[in-house]
Write a protein that binds this DNA or RNA. Sequence first.
DNA 1: CTGAGTTTTTACAACGATTGACATCCGCTG
DNA 2: CAGCGGATGTCAATCGTTGTAAAAACTCAG
Lengths: 333, 333
Amino acid sequence: MATRLSDVAARAGVSVKTVSNVINDYPHITAQTRAKVEAAIEALDYTPNVSARSLRKGRSDFIALAIPEMASPYFAELGAAISRAAKKRGITVLIDQTEGEPAAEKLVLDGMRGQLIDGIIFSPITTAPAKIELAANAKPLVLLGERHAGGTLDHVAVDSVQASFDATTHLISIGRHRIAAIGVGGGAGTGAVRRKGYRKALKAAGLPLDPALELAGTGYHREDGAAAMRELLALPDRPDAVFCFNDSLALGALRSLADAGLSVPGDVAVVGFDDIEDGRYHSPSLTTISADKDWLAENAVALLLDRIAGTGEVDRRDLTVPYTLQIRESTAG
Amino acid sequence: MATRLSDVAARAGVSVKTVSNVINDYPHITAQTRAKVEAAIEALDYTPNVSARSLRKGRSDFIALAIPEMASPYFAELGAAISRAAKKRGITVLIDQTEGEPAAEKLVLDGMRGQLIDGIIFSPITTAPAKIELAANAKPLVLLGERHAGGTLDHVAVDSVQASFDATTHLISIGRHRIAAIGVGGGAGTGAVRRKGYRKALKAAGLPLDPALELAGTGYHREDGAAAMRELLALPDRPDAVFCFNDSLALGALRSLADAGLSVPGDVAVVGFDDIEDGRYHSPSLTTISADKDWLAENAVALLLDRIAGTGEVDRRDLTVPYTLQIRESTAG
DNA sequence: CTGAGTTTTTACAACGATTGACATCCGCTG
DNA sequence: CAGCGGATGTCAATCGTTGTAAAAACTCAG
């Protein structure tokens, strides 16, 4: 079953070394020999044994993507984009669901998978910045997400403060005054950073900051958004707009608004963050911050591969993903 | 950086093989030696090298999951479930997006990844049954999805005919007479099988079969559902219910219905298939066929591992996933 | 205390691909 | 025709782990 290098060599009538040379693009090879070898490879349907190669070379061309959960739409889309970007470069992505568990995240950082993977793209939830720095000796690592903006590791993220500022300002610009925020306490520093932009926008517009309008919730899912929205609607003086720190929260919020018989954006305008596909087809469609996921994926992968190949100790790089505010029905009835 | 077996051996004062024996639970080891070795492993923070192990053993404890796209909600949820099920058994899942491309599917079947993976769970889109049979010599393989029900390969799937029958019958039971079907032509045989159940239900109820009410669409996404629904609404005699062959289609359809100002289920009742999370939080929430994804995942993984470990040529197994009809707002206003 | 029988531990050789040092063999140039 | 560079081949070693088989250590009966 297993075709080996030697099988190819035998069929091509050359030495094992030559086949290896062909595969590894060794400079001095006749077009003729190369053709012969390639024909044999084709004929035998040969694939190099990854284990053997990786054992010998110390490189596997596998990278890991560690995300909290692949079933959540944002991460699913991100994972898909990163897989594609990596595949283009002949790299395979191994997706790791940490489920936000510290133990699982630690495992990732320890360069788990027994030296199989060449590097990690990591979207942390629980692990604190300091610990990441500490453990990050094992493998090249690129961080995603806004946490940790001041660290010493390579990093790719949206400028969440600015984006949140824009989102909130958009709500103000359509005449809203009581603007709530959902997701304030959420994971990975996201909550804190986005709240910063939110508050900044309120302040810039001279609007008061009402603590009752800042909802933490326990997670970043639809149900959390729905619950938070219900809380907001129970307030004596309910908000006329909500900025949700991600689209899932926003979709949950929309559900609660619908249940309450309120119109969107008539009674309450809603803005999300992430631009997941669900939001585009929702009714009403969701206004949201749309970061370029393919850009993010391309750059995260490129950065990591750079670091893996890296000889000299290049400076830490910190990339900012371009984004736009997609105005849709949930704010522009 | 790389701590090797020999490092552990040196520190514990035993031979390399003994350490290996400890790790692999070889029966004859003194408690004392074991303790010594384990202490050394702990102290040095040793992790076995996957490549070397896999090279030597011919087993890697990696399996691949090949799906059309991980960003589509159903497959994202399925992938998450399978990852979890595998992790429980110490297996790592490598997710492969075939994007429905024949070339990519062929690669999967050829047992790509250079013998790294031990087996494949495959959810085919384009590749025909016959070709799968043919190529399936390389690696143990478990098929998902309804295509190929009569083949010779291990197989885990919902009884789509029955489920579709139930879904359609439910629509009939709430008094609908003009029931459309969306997704009839779609990929992987799904369309054909579900249509069969749909037609059967109509026939059983003595309802006429109107070809104009069977919509194919180009894919299984929201946009396809939305487009199909628009087509249906343009009919002179529009349907009073729609059975969509998956939830994404249904959500798209709901969007078009909302755009048209029609009420659900008042004017048109909608049923989906898959029970993805989006449907539960949609407004109106979506009535759907809910197959037990964890059951599916557990059994697919177990079946595959069985086959991998398998000595004797066990008979082909064909597992049917239990499901329920979740009645929600889109049919029960 | 000896020898047989049983545990426990070890030495050695693979697994498949790659690499480096050299040895060839070729056609050419000077 | 010596010599040179290009193109291949030979050979051996290496990556880290584990299966085989045998050596070493221990147990216990006589």
